[in-house]
Design a protein around this nucleic acid. Structure first.
Lengths: 261, 261
DNA sequence: GTCGTCAAGTCCTCATGAGGAGTAGGGTCG
DNA sequence: CGACCCTACTCCTCATGAGGACTTGACGAC
């Protein structure tokens, strides 16, 4: 650990380090308010920009969060949601929306050009017309934004159906598609990346500056390998744990996706 | 998109937006150097701190990277490494280290107290003595840091073996453990989270400020459900894609890890 | 030719000063 | 009692000014 930084380290770095240690040691508990910036100026005997720069470092690390006009607070580290595969089986059971505890705002439903990163996994040309459903999900109680979601369906699959209407579907999307087409979801591929949010995502999800997002692109295919659906979700990264539970291969085998951890 | 911000938006925000658009539109290509800060001061007719604040926003978004004494550059978005399960099968095939293209620096090997986040998944008390192997991995060609890794093995498993010695093991760790104990890796569980790096991680991985990391904790058990090994890896998030390819459950089933995407 | 020195250009640190904007609490007026 | 306003406190924005540290390339001494 970088305890006791030498006098050679930048001042803002030393301040950040002192506060970081107080947070780690519990002197500043999660949820607790930090001293006001002006108070820190007096305490550390440094200028306001220097103090603010130090706070900026801790903000970028996700340790604190500032609220305009109120104060700066130690963030509560909670990762509530666990996400992994297995969604299909449980949805077949319950016959209801996977995210029924969230309020769904359908912000768009209809046809449009497929974005390039989706076209890539679908194996079609960017700009090809597909059926798109975009949604924002909010916690029903706190009204906090939880997720930005979008589904992309080939026109052959969803064209002319109620999936082009901006209404919440009655059950999991894949069950609707199976009913409408008679085809079956057979194989899926998830692609997870973590990145910094765009300005739009940051404002929709009300993210504090410096908070990363988790972005998953989900591709579902039928028994012939044809794409039935691509959907993507974007969450604040600090609310997500991806869990993958699987048997260890006992025999030599070449997995579909190479390959190391 | 937040095109054409009104005059009410903060100045640094407008500057960031203008540069962001130039990057997105390709006027500033990946790898290319941005105008010097002093040049931007003249061009936008704003003060240096304002310009620097705008650059700070783009840095936090992972769009640009500044190098002291050299300049500020548009980051190349490259996600080279794809990681997913299936590691065991291919390792049994090749009988060599999974990360043989990287240089391994064993920074520690021996006994020590288990960290709390590892104790939790191992189901033991924090501080219990375990065998720990810590390593830093570097690209053999560029010498760039690529990964921080650590393995935690119960003393019953690895105590008194060469796994307590700070030398690179001849083949994948799990094959060593299987040979030494006669027990077999049967089931594994990976836990992925994305977060901002600690100060230490940031310096070891030479991360630009504002860049998140991907952190995976891997738990391996034998047929009795006893933990044989826990290992964790930390990568710069922008070099990682996690890919998960799996069959869709056709029948009702309660997966081990609940469960929604 | 090789090495070290130097200067120019770059980003980084930090101080001072001023004003603006959002929030919460208390008081006043109806 | 309720609605409104005012004030104190908070964080946010932005300017100016100065010096330092790092990198590169050119130049001269050896």
């Amino acid at each position: 650990m970088t305890e006791g930084l030498g006098a050679r380290a930048p001042k803002y770095h030393r301040v950040a380090d002192a506060l970081r240690r107080e947070i780690r040691d519990g002197e500043l508990a999660p949820g607790q308010r930090l001293p006001a910036e002006t108070t820190l100026v007096e305490r550390f005997r440094m200028s306001l920009p220097t103090i603010r720069q130090a706070l900026g470092v801790l903000r970028a690390e996700g340790l604190i969060e500032s609220r305009h006009g109120i104060g700066t607070f130690v963030k509560e580290q909670r990762r509530l949601q666990r996400r992994s595969r297995g969604r299909y089986g449980s949805a077949r059971d319950h016959q209801k929306l996977l995210t029924h505890h969230l309020r769904h705002d359908i912000v768009f439903a209809g046809r449009g050009p497929v974005p390039s990163h989706i076209a890539e996994v679908m194996g079609i040309d960017p700009g090809t017309e597909v059926v798109i459903r975009r949604r924002h999900l909010f916690d029903k109680d706190t009204n906090q934004p939880e997720e930005i979601g979008a589904s992309y369906l080939p026109v052959e699959v969803a064209g002319g159906t109620f999936l082009e209407e901006p209404t919440v579907v009655p059950k999991a999307l894949f069950l609707c598609v199976e009913d409408l087409t008679g085809r079956h979801y057979t194989r899926a591929r998830d692609q997870w990346i973590a990145r910094m949010p765009t300005a739009d995502e940051s404002s929709i999800l009300e993210l504090p500056t410096g908070a990363p997002v988790m972005h998953v692109v989900h591709v579902a295919r039928d028994e012939d390998g044809d794409v039935l659906e691509v959907s993507e979700s974007i969450w604040p990264a600090d609310r997500v744990i991806v869990i993958d539970d699987y048997p260890v291969e006992q025999e030599a085998e070449q997995p579909a996706a190479a390959s190391e951890v």
